[in-house]
Simulated assay, not measured.
Amino acid sequence: MMEIIKVGMADLNVTTYPNALTTLGLGSCVGVCIYDTKTKAIGMIHIMLPYSWGVKNNTNPAKFADTGIPLLIEKMEELGVAKKNMVAKLAGGAQMFEVTRSEFMNIGKRNVEAAKKVLQDLGISIVAEDTGGNYGRTIIFYSEDGRLEIKTIGKGTKTI
């Protein structure tokens, strides 16, 4: 019996087959989904910000790409997953508000770039993504086959 486990904002979770993970309302936030092709273990993190630099007493590493993604990988390894078998899918990173000319204010784009850099530094391939745009996403990540279902208001549902 499949259970769909919720991942909150600035939160992460891991599970194994036959379960799925879901997170709601990804705007500028990014859902980073990790799948192990051998064990069918999955992990998901809902990151809000790219980097934790300058944040004193960071009590929630899952809030940031640079601290949260390594923690997610660690949790996957605790399930017996080898890093060499992990692949990633990304969703979110939208520009939800009109931004002045400052790229710094485009948090969505910066979140996507940071997630990609951290995954690259960890040696994990990104096999699919649905990022950018100016609309929110709700995602469901299935352990059965690593498919990521992306639901958007006004744009329907797609699977990557």
Rank of each mutant, 00 (worst) to 15 (best):
G92N: 05
E103Y: 09
G93K: 02
Q95G: 04
E103P: 03
S102Y: 12
A91M: 07
E113N: 00
L90K: 07
V99A: 10
N111T: 13
A94E: 10
K89W: 04
S102M: 12
G93R: 05
E103D: 12
M86A: 12
G108I: 05
V99D: 01
E113G: 00
G92T: 06
M86E: 11
M96Q: 02
S102Q: 14
S102R: 13
V112L: 03
Q95S: 05
F104S: 12
S102P: 02
M96D: 03
K109R: 05
R110A: 10
F97V: 13
M86R: 11
N111F: 11
E103Q: 11
N111S: 07
I107N: 11
K89D: 01
A94T: 14
T100D: 04
A115W: 00
R101E: 13
N106P: 00
I107C: 08
A94P: 10
M96E: 01
M105H: 14
G93M: 02
I107H: 09
I107L: 14
M86C: 15
F97K: 07
N106E: 07
A114H: 11
R110I: 01
V112K: 02
E98R: 06
M105W: 13
N85E: 15
N106I: 10
V87T: 14
R101C: 06
M105F: 13
K84H: 13
